[in-house]
Design a protein around this nucleic acid. Structure first.
Lengths: 120, 120
DNA sequence: TTGACGCATTCCGATATAGGCATATGATGA
DNA sequence: TCATCATATGCCTATATCGGAATGCGTCAA
């Protein structure tokens, strides 16, 4: 009854801009928490929390290195997202072409009757 | 202090599973609210609310047709999402598979090629 | 005009988020 | 052992979500 948990899937996890930035940074290799925090201008606890979310959905992995914890990218979970969105690829080109036609129809439809479409 | 609004961008809008399903249905063409609701097993108000969000981020457009409102896909807002996620494409095959691949490689070849590992 | 239909909006309650701050946990080195 | 650095976690507040139920509003047909 509230929004789905941020940890419910990759879609929710990457909805947060800061988490996306973390992932981008991690493309450059493993990074300790403090460095991520500093690079993104956030506090350490914030970074840790975001990393926790990313870890729970499996987008990052941790490796212990002495006092530090090196977070690294695990982009596997992004693949389903890419594929889902990719399912619309043909549409974001076509939509524009049809927009003209659509607008034209709109103007016309205001004077004529709307074509009867299937209800149901 | 709360999560970013669902209407803040496409990332947030598509984080909700039901909204994703709506978009998928709309790939088949324009649909009135009631039909969407029925097809997805949700109430009409729920469908309307989700459609409002999708409309506010520009992922769908409405067309008035008599009593009905036909919602249609406008996928070009998904393109940035696709591109952002696509920026990780090379990583979900390589990067941290290292561990898995390493193990697999051990079984296969004990000394094929020295995998160049440079982290950072 | 009335009534039925299609849809949008509002109010409600429950939930969990993100941020700030303080603190607990853990490893390291003297 | 103690002090210190690196992280994680707990608590708090403000906010916006999603779902449900009721209702408002516009359109069409009789």
């Amino acid at each position: 009854m509230a929004r789905a948990a941020t940890t419910s899937d990759a879609f929710n996890a990457i909805a947060e801009p800061q988490r996306r930035e973390i992932l981008v940074l991690l493309r450059g290799g493993e990074r300790p928490v403090t460095e991520l925090a500093r690079n993104l201008g956030m506090t350490q606890p914030q970074a840790s929390k975001h990393l926790r979310v990313l870890r729970e959905v499996g987008l990052v992995r941790v490796r212990e290195a002495g006092k530090q914890r090196l977070y690294g990218l695990d982009a596997h979970g992004l693949r389903p997202v890419h594929e889902w969105v990719g399912g619309f690829e043909e549409f974001w080109n076509e939509t524009f072409d049809r927009l003209d036609e659509y607008v034209r129809d709109l103007k016309q439809a205001k004077q004529e009757e709307p074509p009867d479409d299937d209800d149901q």
